[in-house]
């Protein structure tokens, strides 16, 4: 008991160490893994995030009118593990430091991050494709017009075009 008296006295003198929250500020480190944010512009719809998500919180589905892909991240199933962010090649999906997740039951199924990945027609055949994001090009370190040209095509047309270009070069 006596050894603890000293600590008690110190505590009384030092005063409470309680944070002001919810009435004031609290510790919010920059690296906090909070709610996910999705940037549709940067997404290339590779589906890696959906593949690695253990909580099954990410769904990429085709829109009804075929004009693009719907991306839904359901916060109520997200386990905030950061794997999607880690594996995302363009960092289109990332954690914010927003941790205020409490919500009422009515909002349970609404509590999601949604995005729309617009598809564009292939410059050759017109098939709907997901355009390559600027981020990906920057990462590849190559954004010459030649490549950009290729990126506006669907897979098949791209193959054809490459073959043709190769042939042309050989000539």
């Amino acid at each position: 008991m006596s050894s603890f008296l000293k600590i008690i006295l110190q505590n009384l003198i030092k005063g409470p160490s309680t944070e002001k929250y919810p009435f004031g500020d609290t510790f919010e480190p920059a690296g906090l893994r909070g709610k996910l944010r999705f940037n549709a512009e940067a997404c290339i719809a590779c589906g890696t995030c959906e593949h690695v998500c253990a909580g099954g919180a990410i769904r990429i589905t085709e829109a009804e009118d075929c004009s693009g892909l719907n991306m839904v991240i359901w916060h109520n199933s997200c386990c905030y593990c950061g794997l999607c962010q880690f594996f995302c090649p363009t960092k289109a999906i990332r954690h914010t430091i927003d941790y205020h997740t409490a919500h009422k039951q009515e909002d349970k199924f609404n509590y999601a991050e949604r995005g729309f990945i617009k598809t564009v027609p292939c410059s050759r055949c017109g098939k709907q494709i997901v355009p390559a994001a600027q981020e990906l090009l920057e990462q590849a370190g190559n954004s010459s017009d030649e490549i950009k040209d290729l990126l506006s095509m669907c897979e098949k047309c791209r193959q054809k075009e490459t073959v043709i270009r190769g042939a042309l070069r050989n000539v």
């Binding site: 919810p22 941790y99 205020h100 997740t101 919500h103 009422k104 039951q105 909002d107």
Partner: peptide
Amino acid sequence: QVDVNVPGCPPRPQAIID
């Protein structure tokens, strides 16, 4: 009947207070 959901894995104590 559930009234409030606090998702997180785990949620921060601050979120639980919320």
